[in-house]
Protein backbone atom coordinates (compact mmCIF):
# COMPACT_ATOMS: atom_id res chain seq x y z
CA UNK A 1 0.00 0.00 0.00
CA UNK A 2 1.13 3.51 -0.71
CA UNK A 3 3.07 5.41 1.92
CA UNK A 4 1.10 8.26 3.35
CA UNK A 5 1.98 11.09 5.68
CA UNK A 6 -0.05 10.92 8.91
CA UNK A 7 -2.05 14.10 8.38
CA UNK A 8 -3.28 13.15 4.95
CA UNK A 9 -3.78 9.56 6.06
CA UNK A 10 -6.14 10.63 8.83
CA UNK A 11 -8.18 12.91 6.64
CA UNK A 12 -8.33 10.49 3.74
CA UNK A 13 -9.41 7.66 6.03
CA UNK A 14 -12.20 9.79 7.49
CA UNK A 15 -13.23 10.75 3.99
CA UNK A 16 -13.51 7.15 2.81
CA UNK A 17 -15.31 6.16 5.99
CA UNK A 18 -17.83 8.88 5.28
CA UNK A 19 -18.35 7.55 1.76
CA UNK A 20 -18.67 3.97 2.92
CA UNK A 21 -21.21 4.98 5.53
CA UNK A 22 -23.51 6.08 2.74
CA UNK A 23 -26.46 3.78 2.46
CA UNK A 24 -26.86 2.30 -1.02
CA UNK A 25 -30.11 3.25 -2.73
CA UNK A 26 -33.00 0.97 -1.95
CA UNK A 27 -33.30 -0.19 -5.52
CA UNK A 28 -29.70 -1.23 -5.88
CA UNK A 29 -30.39 -4.90 -5.39
CA UNK A 30 -33.99 -4.95 -6.56
CA UNK A 31 -33.27 -7.51 -9.17
CA UNK A 32 -35.93 -9.65 -10.75
CA UNK A 33 -34.40 -12.75 -12.19
CA UNK A 34 -36.59 -14.93 -14.34
CA UNK A 35 -35.32 -18.22 -15.57
CA UNK A 36 -34.72 -18.76 -19.23
CA UNK A 37 -32.68 -17.21 -21.95
CA UNK A 38 -29.87 -15.24 -20.38
CA UNK A 39 -28.42 -14.34 -23.73
CA UNK A 40 -31.31 -12.16 -24.75
CA UNK A 41 -30.93 -8.48 -24.15
CA UNK A 42 -32.61 -7.57 -20.89
CA UNK A 43 -35.35 -5.03 -20.66
CA UNK A 44 -34.54 -1.63 -19.25
CA UNK A 45 -37.53 0.45 -18.49
CA UNK A 46 -38.11 3.54 -16.48
CA UNK A 47 -41.39 2.04 -15.42
CA UNK A 48 -39.49 -0.84 -13.98
CA UNK A 49 -42.19 -2.09 -11.67
CA UNK A 50 -44.74 -2.33 -14.45
CA UNK A 51 -42.23 -3.80 -16.81
CA UNK A 52 -41.14 -6.45 -14.36
CA UNK A 53 -44.71 -7.45 -13.69
CA UNK A 54 -45.45 -7.61 -17.37
CA UNK A 55 -42.34 -9.62 -18.04
CA UNK A 56 -43.19 -12.21 -15.44
CA UNK A 57 -46.85 -12.37 -16.35
CA UNK A 58 -46.27 -12.79 -20.01
CA UNK A 59 -43.20 -14.97 -19.65
CA UNK A 60 -41.66 -13.27 -22.61
CA UNK A 61 -38.45 -11.90 -21.24
CA UNK A 62 -35.53 -13.45 -19.54
CA UNK A 63 -34.35 -10.83 -17.21
CA UNK A 64 -35.13 -7.43 -15.87
CA UNK A 65 -33.28 -5.18 -13.54
CA UNK A 66 -35.11 -2.40 -11.91
CA UNK A 67 -32.99 0.37 -13.18
CA UNK A 68 -33.72 3.90 -12.37
CA UNK A 69 -33.27 6.13 -15.38
CA UNK A 70 -31.45 9.23 -14.41
CA UNK A 71 -32.61 11.11 -17.43
CA UNK A 72 -36.33 10.56 -17.04
CA UNK A 73 -36.78 9.90 -13.37
CA UNK A 74 -38.48 12.23 -10.95
CA UNK A 75 -36.26 14.71 -9.10
CA UNK A 76 -34.04 12.94 -6.65
CA UNK A 77 -33.09 14.66 -3.43
CA UNK A 78 -29.51 14.71 -2.36
CA UNK A 79 -28.54 11.54 -0.56
CA UNK A 80 -26.34 11.00 2.39
CA UNK A 81 -23.25 10.51 0.27
CA UNK A 82 -23.41 14.07 -0.93
CA UNK A 83 -21.75 16.79 1.00
CA UNK A 84 -23.83 19.33 -0.84
CA UNK A 85 -26.83 18.89 -3.12
CA UNK A 86 -26.35 18.69 -6.84
CA UNK A 87 -27.55 21.54 -8.97
CA UNK A 88 -29.87 21.24 -11.90
CA UNK A 89 -28.46 22.66 -15.12
CA UNK A 90 -30.55 22.64 -18.24
CA UNK A 91 -28.69 21.98 -21.44
CA UNK A 92 -29.80 25.19 -23.10
CA UNK A 93 -29.17 27.46 -20.14
CA UNK A 94 -26.63 30.24 -20.28
CA UNK A 95 -24.39 30.14 -17.24
CA UNK A 96 -23.61 33.52 -15.69
CA UNK A 97 -21.86 32.23 -12.58
CA UNK A 98 -20.63 28.67 -13.00
CA UNK A 99 -21.06 26.27 -10.12
CA UNK A 100 -18.79 27.95 -7.61
CA UNK A 101 -17.95 27.09 -4.06
CA UNK A 102 -16.41 28.92 -1.20
CA UNK A 103 -16.61 29.68 2.49
CA UNK A 104 -17.68 32.77 4.31
CA UNK A 105 -18.38 36.05 2.57
CA UNK A 106 -17.20 36.81 -0.94
CA UNK A 107 -18.00 38.92 -3.95
CA UNK A 108 -18.45 36.90 -7.10
CA UNK A 109 -17.21 37.99 -10.52
CA UNK A 110 -19.63 40.34 -12.25
CA UNK A 111 -21.64 39.26 -15.25
CA UNK A 112 -23.64 41.12 -17.83
CA UNK A 113 -27.34 40.83 -18.51
CA UNK A 114 -29.18 42.08 -21.54
CA UNK A 115 -32.35 44.17 -21.39
CA UNK A 116 -35.16 42.30 -19.71
CA UNK A 117 -33.11 39.20 -18.95
CA UNK A 118 -33.68 37.26 -15.75
CA UNK A 119 -31.57 35.02 -13.56
CA UNK A 120 -32.09 31.69 -11.88
CA UNK A 121 -30.08 31.23 -8.69
CA UNK A 122 -29.33 27.92 -6.97
CA UNK A 123 -27.52 27.87 -3.65
CA UNK A 124 -26.48 25.05 -1.34
CA UNK A 125 -24.72 25.31 1.99
CA UNK A 126 -23.33 23.23 4.81
CA UNK A 127 -21.59 24.04 8.05
CA UNK A 128 -20.09 22.09 10.86
CA UNK A 129 -21.22 24.64 13.41
CA UNK A 130 -24.41 26.38 14.45
CA UNK A 131 -23.97 28.90 11.63
CA UNK A 132 -27.04 28.26 9.57
CA UNK A 133 -27.54 30.79 6.78
CA UNK A 134 -26.13 32.14 3.55
CA UNK A 135 -27.36 35.45 2.19
CA UNK A 136 -27.14 36.18 -1.50
CA UNK A 137 -27.68 39.64 -2.86
CA UNK A 138 -26.65 41.72 -5.82
CA UNK A 139 -26.42 45.27 -6.96
CA UNK A 140 -29.93 45.56 -8.23
CA UNK A 141 -32.80 43.54 -6.98
CA UNK A 142 -32.57 39.92 -6.09
CA UNK A 143 -31.69 39.04 -2.57
CA UNK A 144 -32.48 36.02 -0.54
CA UNK A 145 -31.32 33.86 2.30
CA UNK A 146 -30.79 30.15 2.44
CA UNK A 147 -31.18 28.54 5.83
CA UNK A 148 -30.53 25.07 7.14
CA UNK A 149 -26.77 25.04 6.55
CA UNK A 150 -26.22 23.48 9.97
CA UNK A 151 -28.56 20.58 9.28
CA UNK A 152 -26.92 17.24 8.59
CA UNK A 153 -27.96 17.36 4.94
CA UNK A 154 -27.13 21.06 4.63
CA UNK A 155 -29.45 23.69 3.22
CA UNK A 156 -30.40 24.70 -0.27
CA UNK A 157 -32.54 27.23 -2.04
CA UNK A 158 -33.40 28.32 -5.54
CA UNK A 159 -35.22 31.28 -6.97
CA UNK A 160 -35.49 33.28 -10.10
CA UNK A 161 -36.01 36.92 -10.83
CA UNK A 162 -37.46 38.06 -14.11
CA UNK A 163 -36.24 41.18 -15.87
CA UNK A 164 -33.18 41.34 -13.68
CA UNK A 165 -31.35 43.14 -16.45
CA UNK A 166 -33.84 45.99 -16.35
CA UNK A 167 -34.88 47.90 -19.44
CA UNK A 168 -31.31 48.63 -20.50
CA UNK A 169 -29.41 45.61 -19.19
CA UNK A 170 -26.25 45.99 -17.20
CA UNK A 171 -23.58 44.44 -15.05
CA UNK A 172 -24.59 42.35 -12.07
CA UNK A 173 -22.33 41.71 -9.10
CA UNK A 174 -23.35 39.02 -6.63
CA UNK A 175 -22.48 39.13 -2.96
CA UNK A 176 -22.47 36.05 -0.77
CA UNK A 177 -22.56 36.66 2.96
CA UNK A 178 -22.00 33.84 5.41
CA UNK A 179 -20.15 32.83 8.53
CA UNK A 180 -16.58 31.63 7.75
CA UNK A 181 -17.61 28.16 8.91
CA UNK A 182 -20.30 27.90 6.25
CA UNK A 183 -19.37 26.19 3.02
CA UNK A 184 -21.58 27.07 0.10
CA UNK A 185 -22.04 26.51 -3.57
CA UNK A 186 -23.84 28.75 -6.01
CA UNK A 187 -24.87 28.54 -9.62
CA UNK A 188 -26.50 31.37 -11.56
CA UNK A 189 -27.95 30.75 -14.98
CA UNK A 190 -30.37 32.63 -17.16
CA UNK A 191 -33.90 32.48 -16.01
CA UNK A 192 -36.61 31.85 -15.31
CA UNK A 193 -35.79 28.17 -15.71
CA UNK A 194 -37.54 26.61 -18.68
CA UNK A 195 -40.90 25.03 -18.16
CA UNK A 196 -40.82 21.49 -19.45
CA UNK A 197 -43.78 20.23 -21.40
CA UNK A 198 -45.82 17.44 -19.81
CA UNK A 199 -45.77 14.15 -21.70
CA UNK A 200 -47.81 14.54 -24.85
CA UNK A 201 -48.18 18.28 -24.38
CA UNK A 202 -47.47 20.88 -27.07
CA UNK A 203 -46.83 24.53 -26.31
CA UNK A 204 -49.64 26.73 -27.55
CA UNK A 205 -47.81 29.99 -27.10
CA UNK A 206 -44.37 31.20 -26.07
CA UNK A 207 -43.67 31.44 -22.37
CA UNK A 208 -44.89 34.68 -20.81
CA UNK A 209 -42.92 36.31 -17.99
CA UNK A 210 -43.74 38.93 -15.48
CA UNK A 211 -43.32 40.43 -12.03
CA UNK A 212 -46.37 41.12 -9.90
CA UNK A 213 -49.81 41.32 -11.44
CA UNK A 214 -50.18 41.14 -15.17
CA UNK A 215 -51.81 39.34 -18.02
CA UNK A 216 -50.81 36.70 -20.53
CA UNK A 217 -51.44 37.58 -24.17
CA UNK A 218 -54.59 36.04 -25.57
CA UNK A 219 -54.21 32.60 -27.11
CA UNK A 220 -56.42 30.09 -28.84
CA UNK A 221 -56.06 26.37 -28.24
CA UNK A 222 -57.52 23.85 -30.64
CA UNK A 223 -57.67 21.17 -27.96
CA UNK A 224 -57.95 20.99 -24.20
CA UNK A 225 -55.15 23.03 -22.72
CA UNK A 226 -53.21 23.02 -19.46
CA UNK A 227 -51.51 25.95 -17.81
CA UNK A 228 -48.04 25.57 -16.33
CA UNK A 229 -46.74 28.19 -13.91
CA UNK A 230 -43.40 28.83 -12.26
CA UNK A 231 -43.20 31.51 -9.64
CA UNK A 232 -40.65 32.76 -7.15
CA UNK A 233 -40.74 35.29 -4.37
CA UNK A 234 -42.46 36.08 -1.10
CA UNK A 235 -46.20 35.73 -1.46
CA UNK A 236 -48.79 33.89 -3.46
CA UNK A 237 -49.82 34.06 -7.07
CA UNK A 238 -53.36 33.62 -8.35
CA UNK A 239 -54.08 32.91 -11.97
CA UNK A 240 -57.47 33.09 -13.61
CA UNK A 241 -58.50 32.00 -17.04
CA UNK A 242 -61.94 33.49 -16.69
CA UNK A 243 -63.42 30.01 -16.58
CA UNK A 244 -64.58 27.96 -13.67
CA UNK A 245 -61.23 27.14 -12.14
CA UNK A 246 -58.48 29.30 -10.78
CA UNK A 247 -55.25 28.31 -9.07
CA UNK A 248 -53.40 29.89 -6.21
CA UNK A 249 -49.77 29.05 -5.66
CA UNK A 250 -47.51 29.73 -2.73
CA UNK A 251 -44.37 31.07 -4.40
CA UNK A 252 -42.04 31.07 -1.40
CA UNK A 253 -38.64 30.80 -3.03
CA UNK A 254 -39.74 28.67 -5.94
CA UNK A 255 -42.83 26.75 -7.00
CA UNK A 256 -44.11 24.98 -10.04
CA UNK A 257 -47.67 24.09 -10.83
CA UNK A 258 -49.75 22.79 -13.69
CA UNK A 259 -53.50 22.50 -13.98
CA UNK A 260 -56.18 22.02 -16.59
CA UNK A 261 -59.06 24.49 -16.31
CA UNK A 262 -62.50 22.98 -16.63
CA UNK A 263 -65.24 24.34 -18.87
CA UNK A 264 -62.90 24.94 -21.78
CA UNK A 265 -64.18 25.85 -25.22
CA UNK A 266 -61.57 24.73 -27.79
CA UNK A 267 -61.09 27.19 -30.59
CA UNK A 268 -62.14 30.18 -28.51
CA UNK A 269 -59.65 32.88 -27.49
CA UNK A 270 -58.54 32.74 -23.86
CA UNK A 271 -57.05 35.45 -21.71
CA UNK A 272 -55.19 34.73 -18.47
CA UNK A 273 -54.69 37.19 -15.68
CA UNK A 274 -52.15 36.95 -12.90
CA UNK A 275 -52.46 38.59 -9.50
CA UNK A 276 -49.35 38.62 -7.33
CA UNK A 277 -47.29 40.95 -5.12
CA UNK A 278 -44.82 43.06 -7.03
CA UNK A 279 -41.86 41.06 -5.70
CA UNK A 280 -43.15 37.77 -7.12
CA UNK A 281 -41.74 36.72 -10.48
CA UNK A 282 -43.64 34.28 -12.65
CA UNK A 283 -43.69 32.55 -15.98
CA UNK A 284 -46.66 30.94 -17.64
CA UNK A 285 -46.80 28.51 -20.51
CA UNK A 286 -49.85 26.91 -22.07
CA UNK A 287 -49.87 23.37 -23.41
CA UNK A 288 -52.48 21.51 -25.34
CA UNK A 289 -52.87 17.80 -25.82
CA UNK A 290 -52.58 15.17 -23.13
CA UNK A 291 -52.30 17.09 -19.92
CA UNK A 292 -52.41 16.49 -16.21
CA UNK A 293 -55.38 15.60 -14.11
CA UNK A 294 -57.53 18.64 -13.50
CA UNK A 295 -56.52 20.45 -10.39
CA UNK A 296 -53.49 18.30 -9.79
CA UNK A 297 -50.49 19.74 -8.12
CA UNK A 298 -47.93 18.04 -10.29
CA UNK A 299 -44.43 19.26 -10.82
CA UNK A 300 -42.83 19.72 -14.19
CA UNK A 301 -39.35 19.66 -12.88
CA UNK A 302 -36.86 17.34 -14.43
CA UNK A 303 -33.35 16.51 -13.37
CA UNK A 304 -32.12 15.70 -9.91
CA UNK A 305 -31.08 17.56 -6.89
CA UNK A 306 -33.47 20.18 -5.73
CA UNK A 307 -37.08 19.62 -4.83
CA UNK A 308 -39.42 22.45 -5.77
CA UNK A 309 -41.52 24.01 -3.08
CA UNK A 310 -44.85 22.18 -2.86
CA UNK A 311 -47.64 24.14 -4.40
CA UNK A 312 -51.10 24.77 -3.02
CA UNK A 313 -54.05 24.45 -5.35
CA UNK A 314 -57.46 25.93 -4.82
CA UNK A 315 -60.54 25.24 -6.85
CA UNK A 316 -63.61 27.42 -6.52
Amino acid sequence: MVDMDPGLDTRLRAFFEHIEASRPPAGLTDIDVAGGDRGRRPIFNVFAGLAAAAVVAASIAAFAIELRSHHNAAPRPAQSGSLLPRFTVHADSRVFVPATYGKGSVTLPAFALGPGEGVYVQVACKSGTAADTVQVGENQRFGSEVAGCSAPAGGHGEWFVTNQGGPNGGSVTTYVTADPAVSWEILITDGPPPILAPPGGRAVRPTAYGMGSGSVPVFTAAETYSIAIDCSGVGSLAISSGLSQDATISCSRYAQFIFTPSGQAPGQPVSLSVVAPSAVGWEVEVFEGDGPVTGSCATLRDGGGLQPTPCVASSP
Partner: peptide, 13 residues
Protein backbone atom coordinates in the same frame (compact mmCIF):
# COMPACT_ATOMS: atom_id res chain seq x y z
CA UNK B 1 -21.28 19.92 -17.72
CA UNK B 2 -20.03 22.96 -15.89
CA UNK B 3 -16.91 22.50 -13.91
CA UNK B 4 -16.73 23.71 -10.38
CA UNK B 5 -14.90 26.99 -9.99
CA UNK B 6 -13.04 27.87 -6.85
CA UNK B 7 -13.21 30.97 -4.76
CA UNK B 8 -9.88 30.71 -3.04
CA UNK B 9 -10.37 33.34 -0.41
CA UNK B 10 -10.60 31.28 2.70
CA UNK B 11 -8.33 29.31 4.90
CA UNK B 12 -9.55 25.80 5.58
CA UNK B 13 -10.76 25.43 9.12
Amino acid sequence: WPQLAVIDNTTPA
